[in-house]
């Protein structure tokens, strides 16, 4: 859609807007700026390549927006002059080009998203290193960076995410190490590193995660586990491949109530039929 194709409409009660299109350029409808009650905005491009969105300044009017879903678009550049989305709790960036959106020097992402609790970045193939500015989002309780084929590095200051409870990093085949700073997340309950085939070990001090309840590490090629794992007092569930389950036997004895689930490797092409 270009500017000329939109006509003015009034939606004083609209709370959810879904924009579904197929194009590599898209002008956001000007009437969004009058949707003062908008809580959920979903923007999905079904085209072959990521779309450039125009007139993102419209977001300045969306003070009540709680959830934003962007699919197959270029994530707009953020800067310190970006109008804050004060009530945004949840942001999902799917199949997007992240570009350098979070990388501007001195960018304070927490000023723009002061209440963001849940960030999902999925299938974003240009993400090579998670920008360290994301660690400024101190309100985050759930961070999912999944299916990102080129992600090789996590920022060292990850421990700034003190409210983090859920960390999903599954299916990032290039991710080689988990920074030790992960062990400084006092509230972490769930760690999913399944299908991170290049990871070779858990951080040495993993035992410091006193609230960790569950680890999913299917299809990780681990040959050893840190000895500190016996101190994971809250750990109740580990999912791993059958051939590495023996590593957890000692922890199972030390931590009452812990269940080790050895997942069968399941390679199937059934999904092709769907």
């Amino acid at each position: 859609m270009n500017e000329m194709q939109w006509f003015d409409m009034e939606f004083p009660k609209a709370e959810i807007l879904i924009l579904n299109f197929s194009s590599d350029k898209y002008v956001l409808p000007p009437f969004i700026s009058k949707m003062s009650r908008l809580k959920v905005l979903v923007i999905i491009n079904n085209g072959m390549s990521p779309a450039v969105l125009h007139d993102f300044s419209i977001f300045a009017h969306l003070s009540k927006l709680r959830s934003l879903w962007l699919e197959r678009v270029h994530v707009p550049q953020l800067s310190n002059s970006t109008t804050p989305l004060k009530n945004l709790h949840k942001m999902s960036l799917i199949l997007c080009k992240i570009n350098k959106s979070f990388d501007q020097t001195g960018l304070d992402v927490a000023d723009i998203f002061p209440k963001l609790g849940d960030l999902t970045i999925d299938h974003c193939d240009d993400l090579v290193a998670l920008p360290s500015s994301i660690c400024g989002l101190t309100s985050l309780s759930c961070l999912s960076i999944t299916n990102c084929p080129r992600l090789g590095e996590l920022p060292k200051n990850l421990s700034k995410l003190q409210a983090l409870e859920i960390l999903r990093l599954y299916a990032c085949p290039e991710l080689k190490t988990l920074p030790g700073e992960i062990c400084e997340l006092p509230g972490l309950k769930y760690l999913d590193i399944s299908q991170c085939v290049s990871l070779s070990c858990l951080p040495e001090e993993i035992g410091k995660l006193k609230k960790l309840e569950k680890i999913d590490m299917r299809e990780c090629c681990f040959s050893d586990r840190p000895s500190s794992a016996v101190s994971l007092k809250s750990l109740r569930h580990v999912i791993c491949d059958t051939d590495v389950a023996f590593m957890w036997e000692e922890v199972e004895k030390a931590v009452p109530g812990l269940k080790i689930e050895a997942a069968e490797k399941c390679f199937s092409l059934d999904w092709l039929d769907e």
Partner: peptide, 29 residues
């Protein structure tokens, strides 16, 4: 259904506001 433009009856009625809580717009090819 997917159309190139917004539906004609949306335009014809846009002198009055819309009470919709959920709006889904579907354009492109």
């Amino acid at each position: 259904k997917r159309e190139l433009d917004l539906p004609g009856d949306w335009e014809r009625n846009n002198d009055e506001h819309y009470i919709a809580q959920i709006v889904s717009i579907h354009t492109g090819k």
